[in-house]
Structures are given as C-alpha cells and as structure tokens.
C-alpha cells in the first residue's frame, strides 16, 4: 500500500485496512498464521469466563504479537445494553485499552443488532472514555445516530454474521459513506475476496471479518486473498473507476486504419 494512505481509527493509525476476528480457528497456531497472512493490525477477541476447572491452558493473547497488533474486544453474545456495558468494562480492566467493538444482538437467528440498545450502550461507554466501534445494520439513520453519540467509527453489516452473502445493499453503504464523518467499516457477512474488494471500492475505510477466513477450506490462503482484496479495492477506490456507459468506446484509435 501507499505509505501515506493510512487508516486513522480513534487516536491511532494503521497501514492495514483488514480487521480480523480470532474465532473458529483450529488452534492458536492457525489463528496466528491467518492473522499474519491477512496482515491484520487490529484483531477482535471475545470476553468469556475463564475455565475454573482447567485454567492451565495457554491464552490466546500469548499467541499474538501484541507489539504489532491492537486488540479489539467485542461484546458478542450480549442482548442488552447493560450486558454489553458490563462486558466492555471487564475487557478494559483486563488491560488491552479502551477500544470496544460494541455488539448488542437483537435476534438469535439473524444476529441483527438491536440498534436502540446499541445507541444506549454507546452513550454510556463513550462517557466512560471508551473508543466505541458499533456493529449496526446498514441503515444510514442508525449510522448517523451512533456518529452523533460520539462513536469513533460505524460498522454496518454487509449481510448477517457468518452468512458469507457479501454486500447485500451497496446503495445503503453508499449513503452511509456519503454522510459519515467517521470511518465506515464493513463488519460481517462477507464471503470472499471480491466482497471485500467491493466494500473498499465503494469507499469503505476498512473491513472486519472472521468466518470468511476461519471457515475457508484453506484459511491461511484465504487470509492472504482477503488482504489482497482489500488492497485491490482500496487502490481502485483511490484511482477512481471509469463511468459506466451502455455502449462501447473503442480502445484503439480509428486514425491510421488501412483502407
């Protein structure tokens, strides 16, 4: 990537625009290899109870290069604002900073967010000094409300979490992008490299994904594909695509044709 094309999030700056989750990998070695192949500088983690009967197992964080990687704890699985707030506070106490991927789930089957509860939780957490990145529907009004609440970015879904359906509504994302003054990160639902390229071509600032890599037949190869997809899409966005036209325009000049 261009050295001067940096991704600003909160008070930090990143080269990578691919944020990767750490769930669903076979083991820590595969997690680490996939994160490396993806070139991820921000990775998401979940907050869960330690196993009190067998706590001797090594910890995910021991397998991540924390000098290079920013940890983004999520509030996955939380169904109310208060659960999400509680989870975020615990994450911060565990000592990885004030960044939080705020998720308040509204429905178990779709895992679509409960936007009013997300806004409520965001307001509390921002007051407490968190840098809040909310997972939201691809709804421009939801994005606006969360930006107004003081979120450091907005993270509309492309499609349901883990569905791999890709970008279902590029036009809503375009509206969100047009109005947003904070970074727009597509979070959830992408399936393959062309999906992330499309998100970046639309002008999104970054993409967050997990299952699309972890669930691939060859996760590490897919991680590399995703990195390249993000880079290709970003470069295409910066380069500016040609306008769409219904009819042909010759690429070779007419002048000098033999007659």
């Amino acid at each position: 990537m261009n050295d001067d094309d940096l991704f600003h999030l909160g008070d930090k700056t990143y080269r990578s625009r691919l944020i990767v989750g750490t769930g669903k990998y076979r083991d820590f070695a595969e997690t680490r290899a996939a994160l490396d192949a993806a070139g991820a500088e921000i990775v998401t983690v979940a907050v869960r109870r330690v196993n009190i009967t067998d706590s001797g197992k090594d910890n995910l964080l021991d397998h991540l290069d924390l000098s290079r990687i920013t940890i983004l704890p999520n509030t996955a699985g939380c169904h109310t604002a208060s659960e999400a707030i509680r989870t975020a506070r615990l994450a911060r106490e565990a000592g990885v900073g004030s960044l939080v991927k705020l998720e308040v789930i509204g429905d178990e089957k779709t895992l679509f967010p409960d936007v009013p509860a997300t806004i409520e939780a965001a307001q509390v957490l921002i007051k407490e000094g968190f840098t809040v990145l909310p997972y939201i529907t691809d709804d421009p009004i939801a994005a606006k409300r969360l930006e107004d609440a003081g979120c450091a970015a907005v993270m509309p879904l492309a499609a349901p979490i883990g569905s791999g359906l890709g970008i279902r509504n590029p036009y809503n994302l375009m509206i969100i992008l047009e109005h947003s003054r904070v970074p727009v990160i597509v979070d959830a639902g992408v399936g393959t490299a062309s999906d992330v390229a499309q998100a970046m071509e639309l002008g999104c600032d970054a993409v967050l994904l997990n299952t699309a890599i972890a669930g691939a037949r060859e996760p590490i190869l897919m991680a590399e594909a995703m990195r390249l997809g993000v880079e290709a899409g970003r470069k295409a966005f910066l380069a500016g695509r040609i306008a769409r036209k219904l009819y042909a325009t010759a690429s070779s000049p007419i002048d000098g044709m033999i007659r």
Binding site: A46, R48, V50, A94
Partner: peptide, 28 residues
C-alpha cells in the same frame, strides 16, 4: 462491580460473593 487489580490482595472473599473471572478468547 469490577475489582481493580490493585485491590486483589486487599479484598477478602465473603460468604455469598458472586465472582466472575474473565479473559479473552477467540471471537469475531
């Protein structure tokens, strides 16, 4: 209530306390 790290050695557990100890695991 979150117990700040510095208080671990001062806080004696009492009958009926509800304690949660969490860490980070893989997630998206």
């Amino acid at each position: 209530d979150i117990l700040p790290r510095d208080d671990y050695s001062h806080r004696t557990l009492r009958e009926g306390d509800v304690v949660e100890i969490v860490h980070f695991i893989g997630g998206g």
